[in-house]
Each structure stands twice: as structure tokens, then as C-alpha cells.
Design a protein around this nucleic acid. Structure first.
Lengths: 332, 332
DNA sequence: TTGTATGCGTTATCAG
DNA sequence: CTGATAACGCATACAA
């Protein structure tokens, strides 16, 4: 391995001068700088990041932990976070938590172990009371889901308002029997309860009833689960003319499940999703969806993390992403 | 930061003994070991990976560079690679190349810079002749696309055979005017030319003509591009009863584009994709697709990389993934 | 079974 | 403007 020492000898200067050139510091004459650059070129020298990290205490890497990488919503978000981080001089390591508390706690431990400068955690299982989060001092930004009671910087989805807007939209399109396909209710303030509350709020506003059979809980938020829920709904024969799906992924499954049972969208049932993932506009019928500003979220999360890395003791902030309701064929 | 020295002082032993305990080496009495473990517990000590890396020369991290993270095919593959690597004790860092040669070369440089133990590169732009790949010595496995003339370990997609099977299937379903929606032809042996050859081979086998208007080249492999191609095809009024799309992502767009023009799948046109991404079975109509064994590919790539890390001078190997043709509604 | 000395490649400090 | 020296935290070799 070529070291700074080798380059220094080759250029006839000290290691320190090489270091100064490599790090683009000034205080090096143009002549010497050029000699050093030549020596680097000739020798094929590369800085050793481990040594630099050992010395400087920072790695320039931030972690991004998401439940699943192959859910379109998260891969899309990851793409945006990577871009935002890169613009600020950071590299991003993606980690998968599997949407379980152990995985999320593990991502945090791992982030510290590998000495990432900070972690953006898209937590869906841990909540603000979890003791595994007590281990402070590591810069963390929470992204998107749970409520953490102000313990962390937090960029949230417009869960309640988004679903409320979606439900109101269905009502305004004439739907009177509106169901919701969402996760199994859990205690605490989380994405499921928030979205459910948004649904209830909208129904109340329009004077519609929340009929229990129209609440379709899922064990996991997959296309398969959405499809199965649509089958259950159709087979039970309940009257329904509008459906809110908790995510576009679930909505994709619901769309398929309704087609399996010969129900037409939007003819028989209108359907609206949440996330506005890229493929939603290409589905047949194209899917109406609550579209949080993902780019804004990614930028905000990275910005918050970078600030916290710089100033670990700033007070935390909580932000909710703006959104718009994108109306497409599935509700027209 | 708590260091080994701190733990040693707390436990009343030397740093070396702490190191031995941390690395599970024997030669430490149970009594002392327990005292050290207690001290670690109390102090909240964590090993410093950078320091360890500096000494040992390995990071335990491998890079995975893919064109885009938010294309379902790649996110799905990434998920599988992460799992395969984890089972072998490696962590995976995802990198995005943007499907351009500079990005792919950059990923390689970056992998060396950050001292990943190795890199799995899903290259679509670089080819075996590119000088930026001359920089040897870093363990690399090429995944999925280009031809590298035996310079690297290589796990390839069944490009030619897969498209051939898809095209034969269309012919066997009675299609006589079969088109292909694929990338713009480029020189050299690459995924585009290979898949195109598979298409031509199948047509020849069935005695069908390759009609130039039925070759629909795309500038990029997106849903949007697929949709636009379908529009072009429909608007030109060429007779067509079967279409091979170069990826499921493109096929999703084609499906949508045909729907825009009132063409029914499979009634008017049968359509088959390539990759069998998770959402393909949920589309309406569900999409027939060439399904390479992605899990096999991920396992093979990681296995090859780990072997190369261990034995840098082994001869390289090239493997082609097995596949099956999954027949769904779009061709029935 | 445990401790001491040394060095990995880099950067901070301070002297020249 | 440039260089000498001393760390950073850990692990290897060897001594006790």
C-alpha cells in the first residue's frame, strides 16, 4: 500500500505537506503543491480513510435505515436521501431493518459501531418510549412514521391530514360507504393510528358512518396483503363504494384483488392510495394518491442530521412534510 | 469516547487483556474475563472499527453499485444481496451509478477509497475495454449486464435465452407480428444487443419476419419511455399482436400506453416482460415475464466476491442465472 | 495467564 | 510556507 510517507519521499517533502495538499488546505506553495500532485499521480496513492477517521473522528458516512429496500416508497426515498447527502459531502449507507424493533435498534447500534457520523432512521416499530433509544449522543434523525415525543429531530409524513384529504375527496366524489385498508391497530401514536384518525375525522366531517366491516386491517403492508383484503371485502358482500389504502403498495394489491373479483375501479369502487410512488401513475387504472413531498422530506432529514452532527446539543425539531392529493383515474 | 484503555483501567488489567476478551480469544481466565465484561458493560465501551481496520486492513463492508435504486429490479436485487452478504458476515453499502460510465467508474474508485473489502458492480455502461477498469487488485464481481471478456468474475442474466423464450412463447400463443421495445442499439456486446439477438433468433426459429417498424428503441428504460413507445406504435397504425418489453419496468409503461390508446392486453396485443419484479403479478392484467433467479444471482455474486477477497488471484468465473418464463394474463 | 513495546496511516500542534 | 513530533485506538510480537 502506498502511504503518505511514500509520496512525501517521492516529492521530497514531509508527510504533513502531502496531507495539506490532499486536503486542499492552503499554505502550500504552488510549486510544492504541483510536485506533490505529480508524486501522488505517479505512485497511485489513495488516502486511507480508516487512518483519517481514526485521527479526525469522522467518517463522512451517514446511515439510512429503512424497513425494506424493495418497497417502492423506500427505494424512492433512499434515492432522494442519497442525492441530498451527496450534495453535502456525505456518503450514504443503506441498511434494512425488516420493520421490526430489533432491526431498528440494530441499525442504531450498527451506526455507532461503524462510526457513521449520523443515522436517518425510518422507524415503524420503535416508539419514543423504547429503552433501546436511550443511548444518546449519536446524531439521529427520525424519518416519517412514529412519534418520539421530541426526543429526536423528526421529519414526519402528513399521516392524519393526508388520509383525511383522501377520504374527503372520496366523499366529494359521491362515495357514501368508504372503507380503509390499513395496518392492524397498535397502541400508541403511530402511522397506523394516525392515518386511521384522519379517516375517521373526514367521515365525521361529511356526516358519514364508520362501519366496522369496512375497516380492513392488514398484518403487513404488502401488495399480497392488499389483494387478500380486497378478496375478503368482496367475498363478504359488504356494500362499499370507496376505499382508502394505507400505502400505494397496498393499493396496488387492492386494485388487483378487486379486479380478481370483477369489481371495476372507479366504476364500482373508487380507490385512493398514499405515497404517490412512481409507478402509481402507470397502473391501469392510474391511482389517485396522497403525495407527500418526498424530496422535501429527504432534504430536510439530511439537513437536520448535518446540523446535529455539527451541533449535537441543539434543541430538536419536528417537521411535517407538505403534500398534495393527486387525482387520477381510480377516483374519477 | 470510551477506549480499551479506559476499560482496562476500570477492570484493573492491561489493554491487551481487554482486546483478548473483546475478540473472544482464549488465554484469559474466567475471572478476569468476567471482570472485563463488567467493565465494558459499565463504561458502555464499543470497539472502534476504524482503529481495528487500520490494523487489520479489512472493513467487513462490501459495496453494491447499481444504476438506480428506485427501479424495482435493482431494489429487489439489493435486498437479496444484502441478505446474502449478511449471512457471510459482511455489511453492504449501496451506491448509485446513474447508469452512466462515469458513475460506474466512480463507484469503483469510491469502493477503493472507502476501503470496502470488495465491490459488486451492476454495470450497464462500462464494458470490458474501458480503461477505467484497468486498475486491478480490488475485488470486483460484475453483476448482470455487460460482457467483460473474462477480466472479472461475472454473474450474468440469461439475456439472449430469456428473450428468445419470451418471443417463442408469443409465437406459440399465435402471435405473428411480434415487436420488441428495447434500448437504443449500441455497439458491443451488451444487454441490449443480447436481448435483441434473442428476439431475432426466436423469430427465425418460427419463420417469422423481423419488421423494422416493430423495433421500438428507447433512450432510457423507464416506465415513461415504455408508455411513449406504445403510443408511437399505436399511432403509427402498424399491425402488431405481440410485444416483448426489455424489462418489466418498461412493460409497465407499455401496458399503460396501450390502455391509453384503447388496445386490450392480451386481446389485441400480448405482452411479455423481463425480470419478473414483485409487482408484475399484481398488474392488471398481470404480466408474463422472464424470471431470472434473482436469489441465485445475489447468492452467487456475494459468494464469488467473498472468495475473491480471500484469494485475490483465483481465475475468474462467469455464470449465467437460470430462469423460467412465468406465464400470466398478459399472454393468455 | 497477563503485560509491554511498537506501529498501522493520518492529522493537529507548534516550531522553524 | 514547511517540517518534526506526537497522538488517534487497536492488535501483533514477544517478554514476564
Amino acid at each position: 500500500m502506498v502511504t503518505m510517507g511514500d509520496v512525501a519521499r517521492l516529492a521530497g517533502v514531509s508527510k504533513m505537506t502531502v496531507s495539506n495538499v490532499v486536503n486542499n488546505r492552503d499554505g502550500v506553495s504552488d510549486l510544492v503543491r504541483q510536485r506533490v500532485l505529480d508524486a501522488i499521480e505517479r505512485s497511485g496513492y489513495r488516502v486511507n480513510l480508516s487512518a483519517r477517521t481514526l485521527r479526525s473522528g469522522r467518517t463522512g458516512v451517514i446511515g439510512l435505515a429503512v424497513p425494506e429496500i424493495d418497497l417502492p416508497y423506500f427505494s424512492h426515498l433512499a434515492e432522494l436521501v442519497i442525492g441530498a447527502a451527496r450534495r453535502r459531502g456525505y456518503h450514504v449507507t443503506l441498511e434494512r431493518t425488516g420493520a421490526v424493533a430489533a432491526g431498528e435498534a440494530g441499525a442504531l447500534a450498527h451506526s455507532r459501531l461503524l462510526q457513521f457520523d449520523g443515522l436517518i432512521l425510518s422507524a415503524v416499530a420503535l416508539d419514543g418510549l423504547d429503552e433501546r433509544l436511550t443511548d444518546a449522543g449519536h446524531p439521529i434523525v427520525m424519518l416519517g412514521e412514529q412519534d418520539f415525543g421530541g426526543r429526536f429531530d423528526h421529519v414526519a409524513m402528513p399521516n392524519e391530514d393526508g388520509v383525511r384529504a383522501a377520504t374527503l375527496h372520496l366523499a366529494d366524489q359521491g362515495c357514501r360507504r368508504i372503507g380503509i385498508v390499513t395496518g392492524a391497530p397498535r397502541d400508541g401514536v403511530n402511522v397506523i393510528t394516525r392515518r386511521y384518525h384522519g379517516y375517521l375525522a373526514a367521515l365525521a366531517e361529511r356526516g358519514l358512518a364508520a362501519d366496522p366491516p369496512l375497516l380492513l386491517p392488514l398484518n403487513d403492508m404488502t401488495m399480497e396483503a392488499g389483494r387478500a383484503a380486497a378478496h375478503r371485502l368482496a367475498d363478504a358482500g359488504h356494500e362499499v363504494d370507496g376505499l382508502v389504502a394505507v400505502t400505494d403498495t397496498v393499493a396496488t394489491g387492492v386494485l388487483r384483488g378487486l379486479a380478481d373479483r370483477g369489481l371495476r375501479v372507479p366504476g364500482d369502487v373508487r380507490l385512493v392510495g398514499f405515497d404517490d410512488v412512481p409507478q402509481s401513475r402507470f397502473l391501469v387504472p392510474s391511482l389517485s394518491s396522497v403525495a407527500p413531498d418526498h424530496r422535501w422530506m429527504a432534504e430536510k432529514a439530511v439537513e437536520l442530521l448535518v446540523e446535529r452532527i455539527r451541533a449535537p446539543h441543539r434543541p430538536t425539531g419536528a417537521y411535517v412534510a407538505p403534500f398534495e392529493l393527486v387525482v387520477r383515474e381510480s377516483t374519477r
